[in-house]
């Protein structure tokens, strides 16, 4: 049985179609990412699965249960971290975990939970004294107090520094090792590429494409990318005609070149410049990312 199965799910707010007929299949024991810019409909989708919002139409099945018809059963097997993570001001970390544990029929031990998210030495601290990363980690601990089958994390690392982000990634990897299913929304490309077994790319309420990050890059952006600047501008058509180039763009004297044979293209760029006695600055070669996949499909950047 799939962990989550969604068919033709729709939700509108007035005129705005927040979720516009999506299909989704999340397998058990995978980390599934929903990637997209702000306002793509990621959070609304999650909230409908989590029983927070009622779909206008369509079908949701969470391990065979319908969240609209059996919300209490679904809530017992789901673990949810919402985007805003604020708790009761005057309680300590331990007290907060104990309080949330009491909401569920079965729950994990407080000490074990705090260990899982590396907050053991903070158990007596007031929640208001936690740092941003610790705060997020506490909210992840609260999401798994009931030892859920499926864990939802809505932008778990937004606003965190790289080190705090790494720690959260590590925690999420532990969930996978424990056999849990994790659904994570993000607008960070690296996060999706690092964490997710599969991702669904969402934009304007629709799922554009689903697959593993490698698959998507191979399929939609197989080329490598060379970026560089020149002393004086050259005709873009000349650049486009160089060996291996599939597409070339220039913006403020910065060139972006997509190529299927990076070595050849790199060499011909340097030769062309040499022949014209032009200096080349900041030349870089990189592999395409999900960002480029998004750019290719939608024609716009994932972060606006």
């Amino acid at each position: 049985m799939p962990a989550i199965e969604i068919k033709n799910l729709k939700k509108s707010y007035g005129e705005i179609k927040a979720v516009d007929g999506i299909d989704l299949l999340v397998e058990e024991n995978e980390v599934f990412g929903i990637l997209g810019p702000n306002g793509a409909g990621k959070t609304t989708t999650l909230e409908m699965i989590e029983t927070l919002r009622r779909p206008d139409s369509g079908n949701i099945s969470v391990l065979g249960l319908n969240p609209v018809k059996k919300p209490s059963e679904v809530k017992e097997i789901l673990g949810v971290q919402l985007q805003t993570t604020v708790f009761f001001d005057d309680l300590s970390v331990k007290e907060t975990v104990n309080l949330f544990r009491s909401f569920y029929k079965k729950s994990l031990e407080t000490q074990g939970l705090l260990e899982l998210v590396d907050l053991r030495d903070k158990s007596e601290a007031k929640v208001t004294d936690l740092s941003g990363g610790q705060h997020k980690r506490l909210s992840i601990a609260l999401a798994v107090v009931n030892d859920p089958e499926i864990i939802f994390l809505d932008e778990p690392t937004t606003g965190l520094d790289p080190q705090a982000r790494r720690m959260i990634w590590e925690i999420i990897s532990r969930f996978r090792d424990q056999g849990k299913t994790v659904v994570v929304t993000t607008h960070y490309i690296e996060e999706a590429e690092y964490l997710c077994d599969r991702v669904a790319v969402m934009d304007l309420g629709k799922i554009i494409v689903t697959g593993s990050p490698e698959e998507l890059i191979d399929r939609y952006a197989p080329e490598n990318i060379i970026t560089f600047k020149l002393e004086h501008d050259l005709d873009i058509d000349l650049i486009s005609s160089l060996a291996g180039v599939t597409e070339a763009r220039v913006h403020n004297s910065a060139y972006t070149v997509y190529t299927s044979s990076p070595e050849k293209t790199m060499l011909s760029i340097l030769q062309t410049a040499e022949n014209r006695h032009l200096a080349v600055f900041e030349i870089n070669l990189k592999k395409a990312t999900l960002e480029d996949v998004f750019l290719k499909i939608t024609g716009k950047s994932i972060r606006q």
């Binding site: 789901l78 985007q83 909401f103």
Partner: peptide, 10 residues
């Protein structure tokens, strides 16, 4: 958002 967090619990 604490009310919402409680709403997703049983």
């Amino acid at each position: 958002g604490i009310l919402r967090r409680i709403k997703v619990s049983p």
